[in-house]
Design a protein around this nucleic acid. Structure first.
Lengths: 209, 209
DNA sequence: ATGAATATCACCCAAAAGGGTAATGGTTTG
DNA sequence: CAAACCATTACCCTTTTGGGTGATATTCAT
């Protein structure tokens, strides 16, 4: 059973090159080529391909918007974004919109083929440059403010539970202590973080996430 | 120039098996094996390996904490977490702590070797199961947008101010309306977002950021 | 071993938050 | 035009939160 691939790409040469290399593979076949967003939006759904290579910058639409709309109904299809740019915002917007992978143009053809396989299997194929940015997105959160470091383990735990939306009472039950103890802890947390209410404390916590 | 790899893994057999397969590669070498967290924490820094395979569950420490500490100074080293479990929280905590990759145990040896290469080159090697979860993390935000879309502009503004830590009274003053109006708006916000307090509402808001 | 930090519990009090009901005027839309 | 939605204000009531003070037991480091 071959992997069904569709291409949405307005550069005719690149589109054609992609089709050729895909059809050359034993285990995949290009079932459709689109050269603009409008026709892709109309016809992609009924084709139900396994993987779509989607250009981000089409003349008549944004590939990200297309993915956003199409993933609503095409839950079985994996979308791989292809782009010349590596704008941080676009990367995360695309992933949020429902894309499974993100390649910068100029990847060698083997990498693209490999990425189609990976997307088909449920992975998250990305160019190194993109993967690095996604990682960086997580790493950013690391910078621990001194304030937070001043909290005892119990206080950190209480703050964590507080940030999940639990009431004093619920935290007390969860930790099997009285509500007065929790109040005491929270009072200490506020003093150490120099804040006066939950929201401000949680904002301090979230700055580091 | 070979890729220098260190292993932190308390299962002696698995640790040994990893070393063997690594040393078997032409382009990499295992420069150190650690069987507990304490010694790894002490010695890893001076070894300055290119890649570290780090078990998450050590008897004497959490691999995540080790990575957190070690990445402070070892900015050139890429850490790949290895674990039997795929707890969502652990994945993101590990990535935030500074890990570059995340493998579940039981990956074939070729995948591990390939991941070391990928980490060395600055990529983000992950097991499919993990990649799926990271993607899911992004995709989650998509659903939320709908909920927020149900809010009127005024409600969105109030929620925004609320998330900054302002009291009802302060929001009322800022918008030059009475506190009762704000209470009404907030009541409507909670109903639309299906939550019961500030924190939960703000969490919904923040999930889309 | 003395003092500091931590975790625990208690009681009091005031402010803030949250839920309910009701009413008014404006806008939009079928 | 009527129905629906929106923004606004008011009043009532309960629960939750936040601040203050004080006390006890444990642990940990000087």
């Amino acid at each position: 059973m071959k992997v069904n691939v569709a291409i949405v790409e307005d550069d005719k040469n690149y589109n054609q090159a992609l089709k050729k290399i895909i059809d050359f593979q034993e285990d995949m076949i290009c079932v459709a080529q689109f050269f603009n967003g409008t026709s892709a939006l109309k016809e992609l759904e009924s084709l139900d391909p396994d993987v779509v290579l989607m250009d981000i910058q089409l003349q008549d639409a944004s590939g990200i918007d297309l993915v956003f709309k199409l993933t609503e109904t095409m839950s079985q299809t994996n979308f791989i974004m292809c782009t010349s740019f590596e704008d941080d915002d676009k990367i995360f917007t695309a992933l949020r919109a429902g894309a499974s992978g993100y390649l910068v143009k100029g990847e060698p053809m083997e990498k693209i083929i490999q990425s189609i396989q990976e997307a088909y299997k449920g992975g998250a194929p990305m160019s190194f440059a993109i993967a690095k940015r996604v990682l960086h997105h997580f790493h950013e959160s690391k910078v621990q403010v001194q304030d937070l470091a001043a909290l005892t383990p119990t206080e950190k735990e209480v703050l964590e539970l507080l940030s999940e939306g639990l009431l004093y009472k619920e935290i007390a039950d969860k930790k099997c202590v009285t509500i007065d103890t929790i109040k005491k802890h929270i009072g200490n947390i506020y003093r150490k973080l120099q804040v006066n209410n939950k929201i401000e404390a949680i904002n301090k916590l979230n700055q580091n996430k």
